[in-house]
Design a binder for these strands. Structure first.
Length: 469
RNA sequence: GCCGCCAUCGUCUAGUGGCCUAGGACGCUGGGUUUUCAUCCCAGAAAUCGCGGGUUCGACUCCCGCUGGCGGUACCA
């Protein structure tokens, strides 16, 4: 039988890391088994869902490379199907109209809470006389449709792909609402109708859905169909383990990570490591390798906390493993308005080992296209003697005398010789030169940087530095 | 409250009864390479396996209880 999985985000916010994580598992499982991965937009919460959020989610999934094979299907475009299915249940006496007001229900729950009872619907409208239902319906009383939970069913058991056997007592579930008066269905019901309609064979979802599973299984039974296989993976926790991943300890929007220069392959790799353990000890794995190695049985059962440093490290690993050409292209795409965009290719070899994310490129190379600000104290911090100015003058002199066109090998030879003659350490000399060129004590390799700047600019900078000493 | 899931270094994890005086990764510390910073390489610190009972010749591994964390308990998804 063909394996069919789905990912079903609700468009009530921008693509969250947790949503990307949720997409990864059904994607990997479907690809691993040459199956079909379906994208379904669960937009039945009309208060909170927006088209923009749906688009943001779709864009994000495309960027990550988690391409779906079917959809996107929007539930709000499928309302007639849900209506038909709800009526089918009513006809078969498996669902009923409920005329209880919100107020009544709230009071009922309050009473139950006070008496330390489970807060489940009393079933007041369960067996209303036919005439009363007709009368209320025709006089326009507000109603919802409730699923008639088969209490006699006893324990609902299922074998979770990740957790193993799980069971719930159906008595504790209550008659849930499956349809609002306005014809918009509720979550547990749409999910079942859609999973049924889309012939989903494997539902991989967060373990916050474990307690929804018995309700959904009961609905599948009401439709006389065996339920799909369920697998509930753990959620991602905040960095401080203070609960499920939220804005509390940092951004959770995928678009923020993208804007910060994280690579999609690094994010996929990291998310995979958060919920699954690869065989062997390699952790840097491409999407293709993940698909090949993925096994549900190796999915983790306990929740993992977000670890930003590990993502940073993984992103750095990906950057370093790229060819210079590829990194250049990525940077050019990432920095479309960069002032020396055409020079990025030249700079890339100097910074590849020095950046963890694409955005690091800018502060690290800023001095190459912006005149630095000089501070006397920085020079004095490197060379503490009185004749600082004289030394700098000599450095400028050496620079000016170097044969053109400039070669970086010549720089090094010339300044090592200079250091020896003047009795300076090589480090001191190179650092004075570095600050003179970049205004900073930390920079990409000095001589390569000078070559990129060119002889005139380099000498001009040193002269400007000299002027403040 | 009730229902459910989970529990090994700071974090992510390996571990399926003896191979564990608990292995790996990130991070951290120290050292090496190096013109700075990084990269890279080497070394190190870091878990009495949440607690208490069992079962067993033997338990991180099996069972029970407790505690703690998390999730659910909606006309949200």
């Amino acid at each position: 039988m063909e394996i069919r999985t789905r990912m079903a985000p609700s468009p009530t916010g921008k693509l969250h890391l947790g949503t990307a994580y949720a997409a990864l598992w059904p994607y990997l499982f479907a690809k691993k088994n040459q199956g079909t991965f379906i994208l379904r937009i669960e937009d039945t919460d009309t208060e909170r869902s927006t088209k923009e959020f749906a688009e943001n989610i779709i864009d994000g999934l495309v960027w990550l490379g988690l391409k779906w094979d079917g959809g996107p299907f929007y539930q709000m475009e499928r309302l007639s199907l849900y209506k038909e299915k709800a009526e089918e249940l009513i006809k078969e006496n498996k669902a009923y109209y409920c005329f209880c007001s919100m107020r009544e229900l709230e009071e009922e729950r309050k009473k139950q809470a006070a008496a330390d009872q489970s807060q489940i619907y009393s079933g007041k409208c369960r067996n209303l006389p036919k005439e009363e239902i007709e009368q209320k319906l025709s006089s326009g009383v507000d109603f919802v449709i409730r699923f008639k939970l088969p209490v006699e069913r006893g324990k609902v058991k299922f074998s979770d792909l990740i957790h193993g056997e799980i069971e719930f007592d159906s008595q504790l579930l209550g008659d849930m609402v499956i349809m609002r008066k306005n014809g918009i269905p509720l979550y547990n019901f749409v999910v079942v109708v859609d999973d049924l309609d889309m012939k989903i064979t494997h539902v991989l979802r967060g373990d916050d859905h474990i307690s929804n599973t018995p309700r959904q299984i009961l609905l599948f039974e009401a439709f006389n169909t065996p339920p799909p296989q369920y697998g509930h993976y753990p959620m991602i926790l905040n960095q401080d383990r203070s609960g499920k991943l939220s804005k509390r300890t940092g951004s959770t929007a995928l678009s923020d990570y993208r804007a910060d220069g994280f690579l999609p392959e690094a994010i996929i790799n990291y998310l995979a490591l958060l919920g699954w353990t690869p065989p062997g000890d390699r952790e840097i794995l491409s999407k293709e390798e993940l698909i090949q190695l993925f096994e549900i049985k190796n999915m983790n059962v306990g929740a993992a906390a977000w670890n930003q440093q590990k993502l940073d490290w993984i992103n750095g690993q990906y950057i370093r493993s790229m060819s210079d050409e590829e990194l250049t292209q990525r940077l050019q795409e990432f920095l479309p308005d960069h002032p020396i965009r055409e020079k990025i290719a030249e700079v890339v070899p100097l910074i590849k080992d020095r950046i963890k994310k694409l955005s690091d490129f800018v502060p690290l190379t800023n001095f190459l296209f912006t005149e630095p600000e000089y501070e006397k104290s920085v020079f004095q911090g490197i060379y503490k003697k009185e004749n600082l100015r004289q030394i700098m003058e000599k450095i400028v002199e050496v620079m000016e005398k170097l044969p053109r066109p400039w070669q970086k090998e010549v720089f090094e030879e010339a300044f090592r010789k200079f250091a020896e003659e003047e009795g300076l350490s090589v480090t001191e000399t190179f650092q004075l030169l570095r600050v003179g060129i970049s205004g900073q004590t930390v920079s990409p390799p000095l001589f390569e940087s000078m070559q990129i700047l060119g002889d005139q600019e380099s000498v001009a900078r040193l002269q400007k530095a000299l002027s403040i000493l």
